[in-house]
């Protein structure tokens, strides 16, 4: 199972010369800027910026759309309910309910903000190799144990996904079709149980193998990321960009 959002072959990774930590910091900075913006035109601008970034990095449009649709379930509820729950000048009425202009504005703000942040998050961080991301988080001084857990989890998601696919194939070979019934729930319950039982056995083997190789509670990072002048420059650039956006928000 591939987690990274960009294909290995088609990777013309234009951000490769930068430190992965820069991408994490920039994403955080951008997210904090976007949540403090309220003006619709500025939010539109940030959404366009995020889309431009995603395109420049080479994220495929169809994949991005697929991932965004997942989030929109939450958005739809807010989008439908907010115009009616925010008091204000009436835009239109639906039976006894009154949709306000302010409510529509609030809903728009939220949708634009959420999409801008998620797109940028996927473009900047989602295109990193999970292992690189783990190392970058480690260099940003997150607790060692958490980083180890992250790196191990990344590794075993791939392994267990293959196991899961094998079990599903076996189910299909026995003509299993999921429906809304007791049989399905029991089968899925046993599937999850089997996955967990096999995982536990696997983890015991892993621990034994690691102890054999003298694991003393520390994985050494093979490649240290080095913060270069270009990273500082790019960070300054993004700092001034978010500063400009905040300033525009204040003055407009």
């Amino acid at each position: 199972m591939q987690l990274t959002l960009i294909e290995k072959e088609s990777r013309n990774d234009r951000l490769r010369q930068f430190d992965p930590r820069l991408r994490l910091i920039t994403a955080l900075l951008f997210a904090m800027t976007v949540v403090s913006l309220h003006l619709i035109p500025l939010l539109l601008l940030t959404l366009l910026l995020a889309l431009g970034m995603a395109w420049w990095i080479g994220l495929s449009g169809s994949l991005l759309l697929k991932r965004l649709l997942v989030m929109e379930g939450f958005m739809i509820v807010l989008l439908v309910m907010l115009p009616f729950s925010v008091p204000g000048e009436s835009l239109f009425t639906l039976g006894p309910f009154n949709a306000s202009i302010e409510g529509v504005q609030r809903a728009l703000q939220i949708v634009l903000r959420a999409n801008a942040i998620v797109i940028l998050l996927m473009a900047l961080i989602g295109t990193l190799e999970p292992v690189v991301l783990g190392h970058a988080l480690g260099q940003l001084r997150l607790p060692d144990k958490l980083i180890h857990l992250f790196l191990f989890t990344v590794r075993y998601i791939g392994v267990l996904f293959d196991e899961y696919r094998r079990l599903r194939l076996a189910m299909r070979a026995r003509a299993f079709v999921a429906g809304s019934n007791r049989h399905t729930w029991r089968t899925f319950g046993w599937l999850v149980g089997m996955l967990l039982v096999r995982s536990l056995e696997r983890s015991e083997r892993i621990l034994a193998a690691m102890k054999c190789r003298g694991f003393n509670g520390r994985l050494y990072l093979v490649k240290q990321n080095i913060w270069s002048r270009y990273d500082t420059l790019a960070l300054l650039l993004s700092l001034s960009l978010s500063g400009t956006l905040l300033l525009l928000e204040q003055t407009l």
């Binding site: 180890h148 857990l149 191990f152 590794r155 996904f161 399905t184 967990l196 015991e204 892993i206 690691m210």
Partner: peptide, 20 residues
């Protein structure tokens, strides 16, 4: 940690399951 990680990965996979 290996045990927690393997189980955490198993839960990650299980959340991909779509239950009607």
């Amino acid at each position: 940690i290996p045990q927690a990680a393997v189980l955490s990965a198993a839960f990650f996979i299980a959340s991909l399951l779509s239950v009607p």
